[in-house]
Simulated scan of single mutants.
Amino acid sequence: MKNRLKIALVGSRGIPPRYGGAETFVYELSKRLRDYFDVYVTCESDHFGVDEYEGIKRVHIWAKHTPTTTIPIIYDIIATLYLLKKVKDISVVYYVAPDGAYASIIAKIARKKTIINTDGIEWKRLIIRMKYAPLYLKPLYLTTAVALLVAEFLASKLPDITIADSLAIKKHLEQKWKTRKVVYISYGVRKLPQISDEKQRDILRTLGLKPMSYYLTIARLVPENGIHLEIEAFKKTTTNNSLVLVGTLNAGDPYIKHLIKLKGNDARIRFLGGIYDLEILFALRANCLAYIHPYRVGGTNPSLLEQLQFSRPIILYDVPFHKEITRKDGFYFKSSEELANFLNLDKKIKFKNIEVNYAKYLSMFEWSFILQRYLNILSQFFSRGSRFYGSD
Rank of each mutant, 00 (worst) to 15 (best):
L207K: 15
T69P: 05
G226R: 07
V189H: 02
T66F: 10
I185P: 00
I71C: 01
L148P: 03
G247T: 09
D119N: 04
T239W: 14
T70A: 11
N250G: 10
N241S: 15
A97M: 11
R270H: 10
L345S: 13
I227R: 01
S383W: 03
N241L: 04
L209W: 12
E324I: 06
N376D: 15
L375V: 07
K64T: 11
A290L: 08
P193F: 13
R285D: 06
F382S: 06
T217H: 01
E338M: 12
E279A: 09
G208L: 13
Y19T: 08
L142W: 10
K31R: 14
G55C: 08
S386M: 01
D38H: 03
I275F: 10
P294V: 05
W62M: 01
T326G: 07
S383M: 05
A145P: 06
S311F: 00
F333E: 04
I163N: 01
S391K: 14
K157T: 07
G274S: 15
I90V: 15
L148C: 14
D119S: 07
L229D: 09
L281P: 03
D253I: 08
A290R: 04
Q200C: 11
K171S: 12
D119P: 00
K235T: 06
G21S: 00
F310Y: 11
E52W: 02
I218F: 05
N287L: 10
F382I: 05
R285V: 04
L158T: 12
A133G: 11
S213Q: 09
K124L: 15
A251I: 08
L216F: 04
H172P: 01
E337V: 11
P294C: 06
N250Q: 13
Y36R: 02
L192D: 13
P67V: 11
F282K: 11
L9F: 11
N376V: 14
F388S: 07
K236F: 03
V87W: 05
I90K: 01
S311E: 10
I256N: 14
R312Y: 04
Y141G: 04
T162H: 07
S242L: 14
A151P: 08
S213F: 01
K2V: 04
K85W: 13
A151M: 11
V150H: 06
K176W: 04
S383Q: 10
E232A: 07
P72N: 12
A168Y: 09
L135G: 07
H322E: 02
S12Y: 00
L158P: 09
T300Q: 01
G299P: 00
A286F: 03
K124M: 15
R201I: 11
K124T: 12
Y332K: 13
P134Y: 12
Y389D: 09
A340I: 09
L9Y: 03
F37L: 10
K261F: 03
Q194H: 10
A267E: 14
K64D: 13
A283H: 06
L29G: 06
D99Q: 15
V182E: 03
I61D: 01
R373N: 12
G14C: 01
S391E: 14
P134T: 12
P17E: 00
L221D: 02
F382K: 06
P139T: 05
L278K: 14
A103R: 06
R58W: 11
I354P: 07
